[in-house]
Amino acid sequence: MRANLAGLAAVAVAAAALSGCASDRPAEVDAPTDPAGAPVAPEAPPQPHPDASGSVFVDGADQHISGPVGCETLDGVATIRVSTRVPLAWVKLSSLAAPAVLEVMVHAEDYLLGPTVTGAAVTKDGNTYRVTATAQRLVTSTVQMDQVPVEITATCP
């Protein structure tokens, strides 16, 4: 029971982050500066490449998640995204060069999947990554949780 509650809490946090929760007050964030203290313009995040491809299967069913694939590394963690809006999927890997699965997330219309995964594996063939795992799924309409196999394949640009 405690594991299910912890998993539910993790999925709820992910749902809140994905839904773009915001308050009416702007966040107070210090602007980045260079070593001399001068303001530095933030870098624009890498844009997904429209020619890259990806597929997402949950419990053996194609999730029909389409859209551009984005692959980026930040602070040593590689993120591969399939699509830029719901439904979408992403995986976090230890690196793109020698990957190990850190997290798998799928946000569909009627459920959230992840980030808790077991049996995760990744294979790399050139710029194509195939991630398989078993992840916790929360069906939002019934608030029921179950464990399902997931497979995400993406080719990075």
Results as ranks from 00 to 15, higher is better:
V11I: 11
E72W: 09
T140Q: 13
G114R: 05
A14C: 06
V131T: 11
P32M: 07
S141R: 02
N4L: 03
S141G: 14
V82Q: 01
V131K: 15
S55I: 05
C71D: 06
A22P: 00
A98D: 15
Q63H: 01
Q147S: 04
E72P: 03
E109C: 03
D62P: 04
T123Q: 04
P26T: 11
R137V: 03
P39R: 04
C21M: 03
P50S: 13
A14S: 12
A121T: 00
P35R: 11
V29Q: 11
Y111E: 02
P45S: 03
A36F: 06
S23F: 00
C156E: 12
V122L: 02
A97N: 11
C156V: 02
V150P: 10
T128D: 13
V40M: 07
P46C: 04
A41N: 04
A98L: 04
S95R: 00
A10W: 11
N127G: 08
R81G: 00
Y111P: 02
G60E: 02
V69E: 01
V148F: 05
V101N: 08
A100F: 01
P50F: 04
V13G: 10
A36M: 09
P50A: 14
V150A: 14
G126I: 12
P48Y: 15
P87F: 15
G70E: 04
R81D: 00
P26I: 06
V106R: 10
D75R: 15
Q144N: 10
A3F: 00
A97K: 15
V69C: 13
A133W: 15
A38Y: 09
Y129T: 12
T84N: 08
L102N: 15
V101S: 06
T153R: 12
V13P: 04
P157A: 06
V117I: 10
S141L: 05
A52S: 15
P50R: 11
R25S: 12
P149I: 00
I65M: 03
A16E: 12
Q144P: 01
A31L: 05
G60L: 05
A100C: 01
P46K: 11
I65V: 12
G67T: 02
T118D: 05
V29F: 04
E103Y: 03
T132D: 14
F57S: 12
M145P: 01
L96H: 11
F57A: 14
D24S: 13
S94I: 08
T155R: 08
T73N: 07
P45R: 10
L102V: 09
G76H: 06
T153I: 05
S95F: 13
E43L: 08
F57K: 04
V143T: 12
A15G: 09
A36E: 05
T134F: 06
L138Y: 07
S94L: 08
G126L: 12
H49A: 12
